[in-house]
Write a protein that binds this DNA or RNA. Structure first.
Length: 264
DNA sequence: ATGGCTGGTAGAACCAGA
């Protein structure tokens, strides 16, 4: 007997500022599970009501004051199994759950890394690389079917950015970050579902700056958000897309949500 | 013109995002 599970991931840039568009997204797309990044709220005042009204009664929250914060909301049973501190500084950037079928779902918010792509001049860049190294060590040992989603803050391929040449020295697309992300991918033979369904060199973006006069017209996007799957369950993914239209909604996040449908 | 905006928290001529 097969089961279809629809999983979404969205860097929401404040859940409280975005409650209306998240509700619209849940009503229109009806995912079974939604992984959120940058919730920017402590767990005590996370706006659970809207989610529960729509049947999302399983809420796994890992927030903190002001910045970062992740959450997994679900209308099918999930149980928390870990919340790693891959940055080793207490920031809320990961939470992981297990579904009833035993597949793990890991929701991560990799640090942006600051402005200067040099760990000596900019400690945040070093923290980002160290975060990735800890994820590599974890991936090396991983022996359970796992789905890894979230805001990775790296656009690895030339066709993942609006201009490869102009962004080579911009944090999120530097060769060092792209090489490190490739090592992370190789550490578990992770399947990049975005590029499985939209092969390079087709344009594929998930983030557009707030500062563009017209984000859609200039289309200076980057693919910062990703969904990866263990090789042994990658074939369970039967559909995947970036819901770009959400970027044009009223008071949007600067990220668009991703959706993958699995048939287990 | 890849920072032109945006949010949170404080009460900033702030900090952070990417």
């Amino acid at each position: 007997m097969s089961q279809t599970i629809k999983i979404a991931s969205w860097n929401i840039n404040s859940i409280r500022a975005r409650l209306d568009i998240v509700e619209r997204f849940l009503q229109e797309e009806s995912p079974d599970i939604l992984c959120l990044q940058e919730t920017k709220v402590v767990d005590q005042i996370f706006p659970e009501g809207m989610f529960r009204q729509l049947g999302y009664n399983h809420l796994i929250l890992h927030g903190q004051l002001m910045h970062h914060g992740v959450a997994i909301v679900s209308r099918i049973p999930i149980r928390e199994d870990d919340r790693f501190d891959w940055q080793d500084n207490g920031e809320a950037r990961h939470v992981g759950v297990q579904m009833e079928n035993g597949v793990r779902l890991e929701n991560v918010y990799i640090p942006a890394g600051g402005d200067i792509p040099d760990r000596n001049e900019n400690p945040k860049f070093g923290q980002k690389l160290d975060f990735l190294e800890r994820m590599i060590a974890w991936s090396d040992q991983l022996d359970t079917p796992t789905i890894l989603v979230g805001d990775f803050n790296i656009a690895p391929l030339e066709s993942d950015v609006w201009s490869h040449k102009q962004l080579l020295n911009t944090v999120s697309h530097t060769p060092l970050e792209c090489e490190t992300l490739a090592r992370l991918q190789n550490a578990h033979n992770w399947v990049d579902l975005g590029r499985k369904f939209v092969p390079a060199p087709e344009r594929l973006y998930t983030w557009w700056s707030y500062r563009a006069r017209d984000w859609a017209e200039s289309d200076r996007g980057r693919r910062l958000d990703h969904m990866w799957a263990s090789p042994d369950i990658a074939n369970a993914a039967v559909a995947h897309r970036v819901v770009e239209s959400c970027r044009g909604w009223n008071k949007p996040s600067d990220h668009a949500p991703l959706i993958t449908e699995f048939q287990f």
